[in-house]
Amino acid sequence: MAGDGPLLRVNNIEVIYDHVILVLKGVSLEVARGGIVALLGGNGAGKSTTLKAISNLLKAERGQVTKGTVEFEGERLDRLMPHQVVRRGVIQVMEGRHCFEHLTVEDNLLTGAFARRAGRTSVGEDLDRVYHYFPSLKRRRRSLAGYISGGEQQMVAIGRALMSRPKLMLLDEPSMGLAPQLVEEIFAIVDRLNAEQGVSVLLAEQNTNLALRHARYGYILENGRIVLDGPAQALRENADVKEFYLGLAGERRLSYREGKHYKRRKRWLA
């Protein structure tokens, strides 16, 4: 049933690319209604793959969920087409922004309303709402998206997703390549969208410190497995997380060997 239970439940999924490359080896996670959940991990850990398994963009990259299930409001998403997932209220903001460069900012935003098959007035309202959260986009509405700054492009990508009236946004590294100041600005807007519009967020980030300040819960992904999870507060205070993801090693640096040992220990934990 929709009312209780988590909004999103990823149940022990396994993902294989090109029929042979096993990338996710049993990932489970949950996003509560109204929650902000961080999915953390280094390069190649499988964060983007997890998000694409949820949004079903995986199929376009010859990836496949071979085991497990993805449920949204109690309904299985893993057999749907990407546009059907969007219509259910789950939308992914892809890593690297992916704006339509030869379209104006406003046209970019309007493409986000296409899946909803909405009327003109309701699209107009949504557009105003996006401009309300991203006033700088309103000033640049007639510019080609290819010519605006990286931060504005990230805003376009998020605003475009917002136009579909999502219940859950899958944000893939929104901080990538942006100045710290801008990153803060964008994350503050995400917080507001969460609080004011009730959009739940699953946030994939390499920037652990940043993500754990905005999320309420976190999962740490390594090599296609969840190695650790817990409330954001607890993760921030966890000694291992501090050492390996927050770069706050205490008085000594860990040697490579000890790192190995640590990894093994974590695997047992998981």
Binding site: Q92, C99, F100
Partner: peptide, 13 residues
Amino acid sequence: DDHQAALSVGVPL
């Protein structure tokens, strides 16, 4: 312009 991005915003191919 961007096939993948179009998929991601829910354009039915």
